[in-house]
Design a protein around this nucleic acid. Sequence first.
RNA 1: GCCCGGGUGGUGGAAUGGUAGACACUAGGGACUUAAAAUCCCUUGCUCGAAAGGGCGUGCGGGUUCGAGUCCCGCCCCGGGUACCA
Length: 859
Amino acid sequence: MATKSTDYNFHDIEPHWQTFWEKNRSFCAENDSARPKYYVLDMFPYPSGSGLHIGHPEGYTATDIIARYKRARGFNVLHPIGWDAFGLPAEQHAVKTGTHPASNTQNNIVNFKRQIKALGFSYDWEREIDTTDPKYFRWTQWIFLQLFKRGLAYVDERPVWWCPELRTVLANEEVIEGRSEVGGFPVERRNLRQWVLRITAYAERLLADLKEVDWPESTKRMQEAWIGRSEGAEILFPLEHPTAGTLKIFTTRPDTLFGCTYMVIAPEHPLVDTLTSKAQAPAVEAYRKKASAKSDLERTDLAKEKSGVFTGSFAINPVNGQRVPVWIADYVLMGYGTGAIMAVPGQDERDWEFAELYQLPIVRTVQPPADFRGKAFLEDGPALNSANAEVSLNGLHIDAAKSTIIGWLERKGFGTRRVNYKLRDWLFSRQRYWGEPFPIAWVSEADYAKAKLGRSDLPAEPVTFVQGGVIHFALPLPDEALPLVLPEVQSYLPSGTGESPLANETTWLEVWLDFKTGKAVPASAPKPMGDRWVRARRETNTMPQWAGSCWYYLRFLDPRNDRALASSAALQYWGTPDLYVGGAEHAVLHLLYARFWHKVLFDLGVVPPSEPFKKLFHQGIILGEDGEKMSKSRGNVVNPDSIIASHGTDTLRLYLMFLGPLEAMKPWNPRGIEGVHRFLQKVWREMIAADGSVSAKISATGTDTPEVSKLLHETIKKVGDDIENLRFNTAISQMMIFVNALQKAPRFGRDTAAKFLQLLAPFAPHIAEELWERLGNSGSVMAATWPTFDAGKLASSEVKLVFQVNGKHRGDQFVPVGTTQEVALDLARANSRVSPYLEGKVVKRVVFVPGKILNIVVD
RNA sequence: GCCCGGGUGGUGGAAUGGUAGACACUAGGGACUUAAAAUCCCUUGCUCGAAAGGGCGUGCGGGUUCGAGUCCCGCCCCGGGUACCA
């Protein structure tokens, strides 16, 4: 039943149809359907306190158009939404207000849900998920346990930002120019015990499988660069120091080994203390302290001033026996390669700069061309100065020189061929409250041994860490003990020791644990009877927000399942999303982490395909009216609520799509809203007369003018093609062209109007439903099969041929389709606008593109 | 710094290597109206010209091509990511 409005009253129409859809469960996907499936997924939002950002409905409108279009094409469409609700802002809010982050998060979710529902998206709300719901994160914890059992999780000391004044760990975002965002206190790097996931074990597959996915090339390139595969060699440099042994370095340019004139190790390198001479000790210590305050980004900035300090020790270059000094410099990172490099200033810009600064020798081992004026020479060329009694690289180019020297190093036992990745293992823990607790308890060596006898699901190698000389063993909770929920805490403030607030919750933390069932009682209570009870301290770290978003696309398939993350039937039927839409800011981290987890689940046999996201699309950012990024501080934020109130959600949806290409970054322009709103009003006026009845121009039996008929078929074709390619802006402009033609036409058929409404429905579904019903069609417009176009109606008998002389447009003329070059040339010579340019000229060449262009090249 | 994008009228943008500026917005003019709003019609890249028509024009400088917004090389500027914001 349509509304009663005589004019385009979106205030009535939009809620009316939203209620209709909800009552009819119009968008619920069926898990067992004979229809082909289509799964279209949005990157689910973090429900922040400030509500929906205008960027959210941009991407969500795009996927909604696809979802509605695919339904009309006969697909069983899965289009779900949920909440990525763990995270830093909720934690900060909790610290500030003392209220539980869960309550604040729930408030935000209510607000987000209200806003999203007002936009009329065709989500299947029966599949809504929330990463902070124990029923959800039970499976996040389960996946972590699978990683743990496979030896893909370990514990290590890793540097984090530490603020001594606030006595807390800070996120990168909370550190601004070396000071805490809150209070402006100085911060430093400090090593803390962290969980780390062995994503590097999957580096090769993460790289290779990029070939299998339909993603933007730029995103694939970014992931490739991030994984950063490089082939080179590991080389052992003997050290002069009597007990230090050898220094292992990685280089991508082993061919330049003869040009190594010094070595550099990272300030955190384990050999620093051994190699530092007494005389150099104060300088080295001061340098390490300074380096510890810098981020990797600051340290590796090529433009920054190089700095370093000599250790006082020497290594021996294995290829020529030369003594080379060992330096410490912060541009070498412990996390990449071996944390040590051989410096070859002749072929490396940073090394050259460093060598100039500290007056270290420079030897060229690749011959630059005669006209080369630069410093370090990075290109290919014949090697020089590169021979010893056994091997000579002289004259060889890079590739040949590399394999020759690696062969020699391997024979002599000085090194090996080696593939290295920039990708580092994933730091997977946070010293925060608002995250998934790790399902891990720390026990003594003896208790771990006891548990091992009664458990078959422990990793091959135990995960341990040493504290105060005592080895602690990580005992995973058994699957049936999940979920491990967060305890209520007195304070959300960090513990002050670097541990999370959970460290203060003694009754939760210190327990007697049944290693078989995972049941626990507080350690303060007497030890229960039975020999499976061991003394345990729970893990106080929580998981990062990435954890929940790494696998949520799988939970939508079967969101209420309490026996598995999803049933295998659901996993088989739906597979993975056919289309995934979200911001390019996730090009690396989220999309790489999710691929990693997916591959682990694939190896476990849980998921059928080896890649999670077949086709990916990034929507661009919507900037503020001033062309700057939207932010509260700039005061240029647009709230979707106010647009819905003033113009309606159909207008907002249409406007967001008309603004420009989906992938482009584009500024918000409030004037443009009027334009699309006028378009919808025009659509209304063409179909509904002033009294609310159907327009007199439309008749059930009436025929279209030839112009309208041809344009309708062109529009069906273009809108369909454009939706398939996510080019919504041009689809809308085509619909505008069509409606402009309707307006000029004296009459058109009801059938024509109905087909047009079907095209409009994915974009502006509310007005389309309303008009569809008023024109006397039954059921929902979305239940109707997508219209098809008649290719015969698209053909025209004449085309415009453009005449060019020397590539310049000099005239044009309509010619019959199939006009030959000879005829076209005669027409051009006879054309009064073209002929003057041909007079007295010799025709050198004629380029003819049938039906398009005739270019006459003259002297 | 490194990796990845982007730059076209007054504005958002359109354009399989083939007429640059579709579709909108803004502005100006006109129609309707007692008036206004709404709606409809015309004009709207810059420039020379009475007009017909010409010249110039896609961030800057080169190049490839019969023909370049589109491809290549070198710059400039703006944006995203940079591993604890998500």
